[in-house]
Amino acid sequence: MGDNLADMLPEEAITLGARPSDWREAITVAGDALTASGATTDEYTREMIAAVEELGPYIVIAPGLALAHSRPSPSVLRAGLSWVTLSEPIEFGSPNDPVTLVIGLAATAQDGHLEVMSSLAGILADEDQMTQLEDADSPARLRELLTRFSASGD
């Protein structure tokens, strides 16, 4: 388990400017990024989509932001995050539509990633930091910003 946000989000898990055609494809891009970074198998992507089919689009937790995730399962190889920005906003059927950022989350235990979620919550709620993250033009730049922001948190 990585101790900070950037450890859980390698460059392979970052996709900037994706063009999915609907919410399932948007979650699939986030799932593929988790798989590419070695955090999950493809099955986890299906589980994330099934979670929305079952429980509704509650993963759209704030205007423009979907936190795609399912529960810990054998398809999670290690805890990880993915970060997918969308060129065209996508409707999830949520009051917080449309979505422009999908963050994928895979966890191995329900309480093993509390610190990372805490620093993620702090960054996502910080408008100034989010503006800088939206402007990041490469995965390396995005990770650099996240490392700095998570160190300055709390």
Binding site: I61, L67, H69, R71, A121, G122
Partner: peptide
């Protein structure tokens, strides 16, 4: 409360 107990409910707990 969230669907899975690993993501959104933790963020909401943190902000609360």
């Amino acid at each position: 409360v969230c669907g899975m107990g690993i993501g959104t409910s933790l963020i909401l707990k943190n902000n609360t």
